[in-house]
Design a protein around this nucleic acid. Structure first.
Length: 175
DNA sequence: ATATCGATGCTCT
DNA sequence: GAGCATCGATATT
């Protein structure tokens, strides 16, 4: 699955870069915009590869996806990065938040990268650059977050042990 | 530390 | 008119 293989890659946009530490896969399942937003998103997810799919959610936030076909419709939602370059730009765009939260969560990530709706449908490579990981990262899979359908599918992928993944922290601090 | 809740606009029915 | 692939602030332990 493409979403899994993207973990550990470095995503660059201009002076800003971060390691992809969290993704989710959407295909032809009940939670996917391929089904729930069929007229607008369906065509993009169903018949393109390597394009940006950007949408607004809850009227306030944007989310960034890459369309990718794995013998069927699909897209990968980029949920979190570990910032590695252009921290000053990220802080400027995100405001006064802890560095850990600069790109932790899909809405934050989109804001930190300066993503806007005009990118929707463009070639992903026209706006972003991807560098492969040096070593093979340890990847965990979990159910997806923030959806109410098809919650049983383990299509969320995270870099093991990364403090930059989104979601509530349930672990003790002494680690 | 966790739990709850409101904001706000786009898309589909 | 309803429902979101969310975030940040507030209230409570």
């Amino acid at each position: 699955m493409v979403a899994r293989e993207l973990i550990g890659w470095t995503l660059r946009r201009g002076a800003v870069a971060g390691i992809i530490v969290e993704t989710e896969a959407y295909a032809d399942d009940a939670a996917s915009h391929f089904n729930t937003r069929k007229p607008s998103a369906g065509a993009l997810m169903g018949s393109t590869t390597g394009r940006a799919y950007v949408y607004s959610i809850y009227g306030l936030h944007l989310c960034l996806n890459v369309t990718a076909d794995a013998r069927g419709p699909g897209a990968v939602l980029l949920r979190a990065l570990e910032p590695v370059d252009g921290l000053d730009v990220l802080r400027k765009r995100r405001g006064q938040v802890p560095d850990r939260d600069l790109c932790r969560g899909p809405g934050r990530l989109a804001q930190a990268l300066g993503v806007d709706l005009s990118l929707n449908g463009d070639s992903f490579r026209a706006h972003f650059e991807l560098e492969p990981p040096r070593a093979r990262p340890e990847v965990l899979s979990t159910p997806r977050i923030g959806i109410s359908r098809a919650t049983d599918l383990p299509w969320r992928f995270v870099l093991a042990g990364s403090p930059h993944v989104s979601g509530r922290r349930t672990m003790s601090p002494t680690g």
